[in-house]
């Protein structure tokens, strides 16, 4: 078996705001790990055999790695802009491949059927052409000029608007979405999906947001995003196979799925195959 190239990546393992000395026991790619606040106040993560694992706190979460990260955690410059409200949405566990969870996040065509009357509604089902690229310098997947009609795009949105999106995949189990920001048209709201791979077919999903919205109570923001994600959960738990098929013959993409096509190609190129199925079974 080849070495799991995802082992050196950073993964979310808990909410920074809930970090305490008692800690929590969780797992990363099949290995049990413990996450707690150390005596120095920093996050302390230990692996199955008691060894210390790399740890950092960023974007509301504790991040760790089973291997030896060659790069710092990816940057989200917008997250540091003053005036944004940072929203810890909390964990939701899903019995699916971590890669399927990310791919679903990159998809807009399901909005009218799964997020009916919130992120989409019939008859507005058409996905217009958009741009997708693998940016070689950053080594990230990007989709831009994605537009979709939405009945209630955000908690702060009144009535239907055509929303513009940009999607970014900076790590195999993380995606950052930039979305039209109704109160501040010149800025983008940032909505992320950070996925902790517990096993190849089981993950803890930690959505997180950095929004310009001074009006909406924090709890409403949390509930809005939890609602959206839990609507997706019943889809994710019923896809067959559980692992993401990288064999092109296994599933049928259309023009609307170009982000997913690029994501799968990028995963394959890097050998990011934890949670993937290479050959049809």
């Amino acid at each position: 078996m080849t070495r799991n190239t995802m082992i050196d990546g950073w993964y979310p393992v808990g909410l920074a705001s809930q970090l305490d000395a008692h800690g929590r026991v969780t797992a990363l790619m099949g290995e049990p790990i413990a996450v707690r606040r150390g005596e120095d106040g920093n996050a302390k993560v230990t692996g199955g055999n008691g060894r210390d694992l790399p740890a950092c706190i960023r974007y509301g979460h504790v991040w760790s790695s089973l291997g030896d990260p060659q790069k710092p955690l990816f940057a989200i410059p917008e997250a540091d802009q003053p005036g944004r409200r940072l929203v810890d949405v909390g964990v939701v566990r899903v019995r699916c491949s971590p890669l399927r969870a990310v791919e679903n996040f990159l998809d807009i065509a399901h909005f009218p059927f799964v997020h009916t009357d919130i992120l989409g509604a019939e008859p507005h089902t058409e996905v217009q052409n958009y741009k997708v690229e693998i940016r070689e310098d950053e080594d990230e997947v990007w989709a831009t000029q994605v537009k979709f009609y939405q009945p209630q795009a955000a908690k702060s949105a009144e009535g239907g608007i055509t929303t513009e999106y940009m999607y970014r995949v900076p790590a195999p189990t993380c995606s950052v979405l930039y979305k039209t920001c109704p109160p501040r048209p010149a800025e983008w709201d940032v909505i992320t999906l950070f996925v902790q791979p517990l096993a190849e077919d089981l993950c803890d999903v930690w959505p997180w947001m950095a929004l310009f919205d001074d009006e909406t109570p924090m709890t409403d923001l949390i509930h809005f995003q939890q609602t959206i994600f839990v609507q997706d959960r019943s889809i994710l738990e019923n896809q067959i196979p559980r692992l993401l098929p990288l064999d092109p013959g296994m599933e049928i993409p259309t023009r609307a799925d170009l982000t997913s096509v690029a994501y799968r190609r990028w995963l394959k190129r890097h050998g990011y195959t934890y949670g993937a199925q290479l050959v049809a079974q």
């Binding site: 065509a109 059927f113 089902t125 889809i235």
Partner: peptide, 21 residues
């Protein structure tokens, strides 16, 4: 299909893909 609304006739052929009406 509940996911993207692709619809199939009784014979199994796909009839409609809502993302591309």
């Amino acid at each position: 299909c509940i996911y993207h609304g692709w619809s199939y006739a009784k014979a199994g052929n796909c009839q409609r893909i809502p993302a591309h009406p």
